[in-house]
Amino acid sequence: MSDTTQKTDTVVEDLTGPSAPAPAPQKQDKTRSLAQDAFRDLIRLPMFLISAALILGILVIAAFPSLFTSVDPLACDLSHSMEGPSGSAWFGYNFQGCDVYSQTIHGTRNSVIVGVLTTVFSLVIGGLVGVLGGYFGKWTDALLSFVTNVFFGLPLLLAAIVILNNFRDEKGMRNAGVMAVVLTLTVVGWMSMARVMRGAVMQVKQADYVAAARSLGASTTRMMFRHVLPNSITPLIVVATISLGAVIGAEATLSFLGIGIRPPAISWGVMISEAQGRISQGLHPLLFPSGMLTITVLAFIMLGDAVRDAFDPKLR
């Protein structure tokens, strides 16, 4: 009996080796979060890569215009009035003899500043109103919803024109600076973000993990900033990304109407406003700032659509 057992052990040892180590347990991959999965999908989307590259280029131009042109945008020579594109002036000259390329590059800064600051301020105000109304509900939600509806009743452009029409410079002339335009567009543009945030918070606060945290005695502040806000901020970011392009377009519209930023400050809207009355003399002073404005607005809309598709669970 012992000989049979010894032979069996010898056969097993020959098959497995005299000191074959036990296979090491494989490490299981950590479960990825929704944000990690969304980012992984984003970097595979051509629409996201193209829009992100365009936006990055626009931000670099806005931050460092001197890297792209050394020509003073306010150095004008009437002898070059309405000259077309050439080697010395890639976009030609406007009716005042100013370099259109230089003005387009330097005008990027004011247009982008208005869009970014307005979007950030609207995101903060709208996000705060939406979180408070959606989380606390009852009379708090009723009051904040009433205030939001009152502002929703104001036509955006009409309200902005009325507000900006009251800004005057030291000479008493109607002139609104960059911050005046930012604050005005914020006042008339935060409501949609409040609505989006309110709906997201009302949905998230019904989740099981929020109820579990509440039953464990988590404070209201911890509940809002640790559980509710991080899980409801995604729709707000998507709306803010799309709105940023719309805000840049709104600033251009106000400047075109002569209500927003005024010369000698430079923005794409100011350039379009100055060029539209002389289309018969040449299209180039109107074409290039309009093209930059269109590309910028389209890039932010494409980015917002890509982020929305990546973070929407229904599309995954």
Rank of each mutant, 00 (worst) to 15 (best):
R214L: 11
E251C: 08
S215R: 08
A200I: 11
F64G: 00
M82W: 02
F64V: 15
M191C: 12
M202L: 13
Q28W: 00
P21A: 04
V100L: 04
S267K: 03
M193D: 01
L143C: 03
F288E: 06
C98N: 06
A52D: 02
I261Q: 10
P25H: 00
A299W: 08
I161K: 03
L298H: 08
I261T: 09
L244V: 02
K171G: 11
I163H: 07
L74F: 05
I248C: 06
T119A: 04
G258K: 10
A89K: 12
G127T: 12
Q203R: 13
I279D: 01
G258Q: 06
L287C: 06
G92Q: 02
L42K: 04
D309Y: 07
A142F: 13
E83R: 09
V188C: 08
F91R: 11
G127I: 07
T140E: 06
M271F: 07
S192K: 00
M1S: 13
M223W: 05
P263A: 10
P289G: 06
L298V: 10
N110V: 15
S88M: 08
S145C: 00
Q206W: 05
L49G: 09
K138H: 12
V12N: 10
D3Q: 09
L117E: 09
A250H: 11
F95P: 01
G277L: 09
L143S: 03
S219K: 00
L286M: 14
K205G: 02
V210E: 03
D9E: 15
T221A: 15
G282D: 03
A63L: 15
M179I: 13
R222C: 05
N231D: 14
D309I: 09
D141H: 02
F91I: 07
I272P: 02
V196N: 01
A218I: 02
P25Q: 14
D72I: 01
S280A: 14
T5F: 01
P25I: 14
I105G: 01
F300M: 08
T119R: 04
T8P: 05
V131N: 02
H80I: 01
A194R: 09
I43P: 00
L45W: 11
A20I: 10
L132I: 08
F39T: 12
E274I: 02
T140S: 11
